[in-house]
Design a protein around this nucleic acid. Sequence first.
DNA 1: CATGAATGAGCATTCATTCAT
DNA 2: AATGAATGAATGCTCATTCAT
Lengths: 214, 214, 214, 214
Amino acid sequence: MTSSARPLSRAERKKQELRREIIDAAFECFAERGYHATGIADIAARLGIGHGTFYRYFENKRDIVDHVIDDLVARISTALTAENAPDAVSTLEDYREQTARIGESLARIFGEDPRVPRLLLVEAAGIDKAMAERVLDFFDLAGTLTAAYLAHGVELGYLRADLDVHNTARAITGMIMAAALSSLRRPEPAHQRQLSEAIRRVMYDGIAAHDTPG
Amino acid sequence: MTSSARPLSRAERKKQELRREIIDAAFECFAERGYHATGIADIAARLGIGHGTFYRYFENKRDIVDHVIDDLVARISTALTAENAPDAVSTLEDYREQTARIGESLARIFGEDPRVPRLLLVEAAGIDKAMAERVLDFFDLAGTLTAAYLAHGVELGYLRADLDVHNTARAITGMIMAAALSSLRRPEPAHQRQLSEAIRRVMYDGIAAHDTPG
Amino acid sequence: MTSSARPLSRAERKKQELRREIIDAAFECFAERGYHATGIADIAARLGIGHGTFYRYFENKRDIVDHVIDDLVARISTALTAENAPDAVSTLEDYREQTARIGESLARIFGEDPRVPRLLLVEAAGIDKAMAERVLDFFDLAGTLTAAYLAHGVELGYLRADLDVHNTARAITGMIMAAALSSLRRPEPAHQRQLSEAIRRVMYDGIAAHDTPG
Amino acid sequence: MTSSARPLSRAERKKQELRREIIDAAFECFAERGYHATGIADIAARLGIGHGTFYRYFENKRDIVDHVIDDLVARISTALTAENAPDAVSTLEDYREQTARIGESLARIFGEDPRVPRLLLVEAAGIDKAMAERVLDFFDLAGTLTAAYLAHGVELGYLRADLDVHNTARAITGMIMAAALSSLRRPEPAHQRQLSEAIRRVMYDGIAAHDTPG
DNA sequence: CATGAATGAGCATTCATTCAT
DNA sequence: AATGAATGAATGCTCATTCAT
């Protein structure tokens, strides 16, 4: 899926390795100090390489941050699509379990390394116009994916027939975003679990008292 | 509330006026070009003043952006607390109306001038560590405010007794954030109204089909 | 002819003055060290100004060298056209005197400050493609000017009727160039005078022995 | 003339060959892009060799340009001295023919490949102080050679007895230089021939009308 | 008080050169 | 011998800030 030609020479492999390390170091720097406060020299110094070396692997400062974000988005996408497809479930019960699973996946990704949500939600949008667009694209993508899940549920009848699929998906994406942001200040798994549960309760039960269905 | 001594000399008043204009100009620049891409000269040029003058009113570039954000937060807070207090309602029906009212207020603020959500949600967090904290503070504040509404509803019995007030408030804040972000790309009032409605439907009815209470 | 509005404020005058000084300092640096070996810092240091100041007066390094060359060309043009017009003479005798005068003018310009021919003939062409073109333009211009003198002479009959005006002008320009170059190594006025005389002898008498008219 | 020991091993011969190719590639790069705009990598890339290899054959960038110029000067000298010696002629008629022959040789060299005059007259002098000196040396050399021809003619009586041999030689060199420069913009053989003819007419007939001997 | 000329710290980027493989 | 990955000195340029006028 990833590699095309197997026989990578040793040199080629080392090259790919360093490239990876530069992306990782850049990720760390950008997430910790912020994009604008990070110099190419900082990234290079973190790896103990000359800063000229950086330019053998990436065009310029703007180039690498794209790769860092690509990497993050890919990591998240992979984690999410791994075991959860929109059409993998057929009952509300299954769906609740699936959303719980997805929630856990997200919690793991964002919770394990707070730099992930920090870079994605705090730093990225402020880099420049183009990156802000990318971040908005990312939210749109998340909304579209979520909408697919919802549409499937409506089709199969376990979700409200009059559900505004796209806008509800946006609302849900917003709640996920809130959870990710909240993990920056309250990274404890317990808290994240509770927030995740509260989100699911809102989704399934709403907030109103039982005897007053609205 | 704001001013203490009334008798401002004419000079003093002009000074306050220019100060205001600088804040506004800075807001426009930061929102349009981004904080890092904006120079003090840009702000001054927009007003037709010398850029040295800027420094008679604000310490430095970092200083003014704080004031710009203060200003925004104050504007939003004012709009929200104007006619809506957490304890102003006592039935679910009233509460629905109140949330609708609040939603409209927010839609107006974010929808009227897309630079408001852009600066607050796109630019601000990436400025530096301190500003990122402020943005997170802002979200926490929004959550705390929302929590007060929810707590009032639980107390009066029109909201679920087992509602996780704080985390649900965070989730709701997230949905509002999503709406604000979405206004950047889909500023049409109709769309904003639909999204707002979808959010309220999630809050009151959840997403599940009626005959399957979960 | 030069200035349009008289009432230049004191500040404006100082600005023009510094601009002049920067051009002069750049001329000196470029002529002495060469364009590529000269840093903006060198130019600024020579004037005792901060190197940021440089950029208040000129776009970039490439910008100023254009102004330096403009300046040189203007200085030379002025000196040449001062008292010598192609149609100011009507006999060969007059023409010889005019060429002698022009030769002296050139000798003065190139001889007084060897950095002038050095920058123009040694440094300039190697700066980049665009400047090389400018230098060639300059030679073409010199050729065109010279051609005008020759054409006038042919018309009035004191120069050969079958003179290939344009190519002969190019040849003469070449001899002038040789004289300018030679002034770099043999700047003594006596030598320059002799070379100038030799050039004129070639022009008027050719090199062949009298009794063998070719 | 060039090699001392005959039996060059096969390896040795290949080495010499590559050395040649590097010089040629460097010549092309320097002439086309200019010395400063050419990187060692460009030269190596043109040959398809690693740019580390370059340093096995030449000390550094400055080193090779010396060799490139050496090569050019040698090529030109060879072409000129091939069949034309200062003392090979004894009449003005012969001399005219000889200068025509030399002119044709030069025209061929400069006209065949415009990169030759470009590198020699446009790029070289701007490289650095030392190279500028070399270029001036080259002109001096050309002048000295020409002076030898003239001296021979004076001695044999077919050139003016009062000819200022050295300075006239410089003037003639200047005309040749002008022709070479002109070939950059007007490379058509016809034009070059006309310019060449005009130069010879100046040399032999001067520019004055016949009946006015000056 | 307002101005904008002057400043220089700071940073991205290039490229000749070295050297381990 | 050939290679090209690594290096870091060098430099053009920006822009927030100061201060003399």
